[in-house]
Amino acid sequence: SSIAGMPPDQVLLVLQGAEPPILCARQKMSRPYTEVTMMAMLTSMADKELVHMIAWAKKLPGFVQLSLHDQVQLLESAWLEVLMIGLMWRSIHCPGKLIFAQDLILDRDESTCVEGMAEIFDMLLATTSRFRLLKLKPEEFVCLKAIVLLNSGAFAFCTSTMEPLHDSTAVQIMLDTITDALVHYISQSGCTVQQQSRRQAQLLLLLTHIRHMSNKGMEHLYSIKCKNTVPLYDLLLEMLDAHRLH
């Protein structure tokens, strides 16, 4: 289960095998949605997805060998980025729509019923278009998602909210191995070396947008929590509180 020295093809197989399922919302509210019904559906979905995200993280090679403290730090730091990259990947073939669940597909105009949400929807749709334009491959997606989890909390400054990792070297080794797998996959595309380097950069530059959207989304979710009109589930609340926004 050690990741150091794992061949790139095996890393790709393990990452693809770790993918969580696409969920169903089930408790669907009737249209037109209101701020309360929309946020109730989205936060309920996020809470359910978080449970699957934790199971996914535990399948990443090397993750369960990290200390519990480091596992918590990485997940608390990156959870909304991981949810967002998954949402964009699911939505890649549906321009103008975000596929939150098999039975919960929303377009931009529907997001306007929640104050401040259209701005975040627009950013998610724009970044999804970028994924589409780049013709992001499943192998590249699974690498990027794992990189998001390992990168976001790894080199964070020590602030009042985020503590340093116990073993940042172990996280760096995982990150390097997954980066190698991504580079290896791109190298098999038949492109020139320059085109390969460019694609590596193009894909990794997407992560800056994902971090930005997560920060915006976290602020938005915090504002929803403060309004106290939508009850948030335990796990989602814990993950939000880890960011202790002001």
Binding site: I54, Q71, V72, L75, E76, D234, E238
Partner: peptide, 13 residues
């Protein structure tokens, strides 16, 4: 982070 710890420490089925 009680729930998170609980999910991290339970064995997969």
């Amino acid at each position: 982070h009680t729930k998170l710890l609980q999910l991290l420490t339970t064995k997969p089925e």
